[in-house]
Amino acid sequence: MRTVVFLCEHQDEGSFGFVLNKNYEYTLDELVSGLDDLKKIPVYLGGPVQMDTIHFLHQYPDKIAGGYEIIDGVFWGGSFETAIDLIRNGEIDMGKIRFYIGYSGWGSGQLADELKEKSWLTVPASRPLVFHKKPSEIWKDALRHLGGEYEMMVNFPIDPQLN
Rank of each mutant, 00 (worst) to 15 (best):
V19S: 04
G73M: 08
Y24R: 10
E69H: 06
G17R: 13
Q50N: 14
H10G: 00
S104A: 15
Q50M: 08
V74L: 08
Y103C: 04
Q11H: 07
D141L: 06
K116T: 11
L20A: 09
P135T: 14
N163F: 14
Y150V: 01
D93G: 12
Y60P: 13
D29I: 02
K63Y: 12
Y26E: 02
M153W: 08
W120Q: 11
R127T: 09
T3K: 11
A65W: 03
H58F: 01
T82K: 15
E30A: 15
E114W: 04
G90S: 02
E25T: 07
Q11I: 04
Q161D: 03
S33N: 07
K140H: 14
V32N: 08
H10K: 07
N21G: 14
P160E: 12
W76M: 06
M152T: 13
F75R: 10
L7Q: 07
G90E: 02
Y60L: 11
V32F: 09
N155G: 15
T27M: 02
M94E: 14
D36M: 11
F99K: 04
F156T: 08
Y100S: 02
S104D: 06
G66M: 11
L86I: 09
R2S: 15
K140D: 15
T3Y: 02
A125H: 04
H58W: 03
E117Y: 11
E9H: 06
C8L: 09
K118D: 09
M94Y: 10
G67H: 07
G17M: 08
A83F: 06
M94I: 14
P42D: 12
E91V: 07
L7N: 05
G90L: 06
G90P: 08
I158D: 15
L35I: 05
P48M: 02
Y103N: 02
A83L: 10
G46S: 09
I101Y: 00
H132L: 05
S136L: 12
V130N: 01
C8G: 08
A65Y: 06
K96V: 00
K118E: 11
I92T: 10
T53N: 12
L86Q: 10
Q11S: 06
W139Q: 00
A65D: 11
P124N: 01
E114Q: 05
Y68R: 12
E25V: 04
V74R: 10
L45Q: 06
G77H: 10
E151A: 01
G95Q: 15
G66E: 12
Y60M: 12
G102D: 11
D85S: 03
V19Y: 08
D12K: 12
G102R: 04
N163V: 14
S108P: 03
V74E: 05
S33R: 05
P124E: 01
S119D: 15
K63E: 15
W76S: 03
D113R: 00
Y44T: 00
